[in-house]
Design a protein around this nucleic acid. Structure first.
Lengths: 218, 218
DNA sequence: TTAATTACTGACTGACCAGTCATTAAATAA
DNA sequence: TTATTTAATGACTGGTCAGTCAGTAATTAA
């Protein structure tokens, strides 16, 4: 007689869980996209990571790209809305608002798994242009408008110097997005580390150039 | 009798041009890497674009990655050396040096085809780590040291405020590199355009925060 | 002129992977 | 209990591509 260690027979080979699948798929996908990029992520792995087979994936999403669209739509759009609301309702001085806005971005995007998304989109923009177009329309333009509006508010109210608001908005955004790109690309190969000072110093530099010199104001 | 339009018989099917091949291959490769990225560039296309067959490619370079290494080595390193020399020999005021350094970077990298390289490396860092490591060692660290040294010079000489030189160097580089990444990724999908003011304003903002306030100096 | 060398070619191999679909079985209705 | 519906499976298809190598022809040496 042969003694064999038998695996406990699972009560059933699988469960039907229509409700939970989409979210589980999106979470698995974002994690893999972050790690490998869009093109290099295999649908078999997304499926495995979400605990299903590849065929099931295609019951819920019609293609790899549609999964990415959903990730952006479901995860980033809500964050932007939050911030838009914050800006719309803010009453205090504009430099405080701007400071708070930059910090909010850092806390809600820069330090979360969402920080991987800009790098993914940028990386794949050449081979998946629809994906880039979607991201520009859904995220980039809205975010830029947000910063442009805040700078404009400061200029109009007389708190800030007269500046090119578009160019300034870009100068504010650049070091923030750049930091996330770096995090998800070269950081592992770079022994230098990004201190918290980076964002603080960025805020300080930007405000120093924006806020009117108080010497002659009374 | 059949009249046929005969192609002029080429005197020979191909020429042996050992000397010129490597450079032609690197040029073709950089162009395709820029357009499609590293992974998505097919060796058949590099060959075709360089006017040879795929087999010949492998007489000159042992792999796709080795071609990329050669591109960085041959094209970027000389640029960095130029700038290092400029910095080492500069005698005038540090703010002029910094201004000139940023402009030099923009002219010699930002506005040339070399501007594509950061985006390529970042995009492929996950799937081709050796490539990223090579780039960090060969380019990133040297460039950062350059800017850090210049800021330090200003601080030591008393021209600049006492600042975290590492963090400041990053803040200087970020908008520059970010602009090149944007150029080669999202720009085609973004109707907003990058005006020349962007770099000028960046220089202005940075120097405003670095240069000591002259009010109490005589 | 003939032989030896080597730059060059391109068909081929093996590996990879997005998306499909015939089949299976869990859940639910009759 | 039996029939119906549908969530889930995974083998398979058709396509892609880095790298190889046996053979071809341009060049050079003998």
């Amino acid at each position: 007689m042969v003694f064999s260690i038998s695996k406990p027979e699972p009560s059933s080979r699988w469960k039907r869980r229509k409700e939970d699948r989409p979210e589980e798929i999106l979470n698995a996908a974002l994690e893999l996209f972050t790690e490998k990029g869009f093109a290099a992520t295999r649908m078999d792995d997304v499926a495995k990571s979400a605990g299903i087979s590849k065929g099931t994936l295609y019951n819920y999403f019609e293609s790899k790209e549609s999964i990415f669209h959903a990730v952006v739509q479901e995860m980033i759009s809500p964050e932007i809305e939050k911030v838009e609301t914050m800006v719309a309702n803010y009453k205090g001085p504009t430099d405080h608002l701007l400071r708070q806005l930059i910090r909010a971005w850092w806390t809600n995007v820069g330090e979360t798994r969402l920080s991987a998304i800009p790098k993914i989109v940028i990386s794949e923009s050449g081979n998946f242009p629809e994906l880039a177009e979607f991201f520009v329309e859904t995220v980039v333009k809205r975010a830029r408008r947000l910063f442009t509006d805040v700078v404009s508010r400061g200029v109009v109210s007389g708190e800030f110097n007269l500046v090119e608001t578009q160019a300034v908005a870009r100068l504010i955004i650049a070091p923030l997005v750049y930091a996330t790109i770096w995090q998800h690309s070269l950081k592992p190969f770079d022994d230098d580390y990004l201190s918290d000072e980076y964002v603080d110093l960025h805020i300080k530099f930007i405000l120093k150039s924006l806020i009117k010199d108080q010497r002659f104001d009374v």
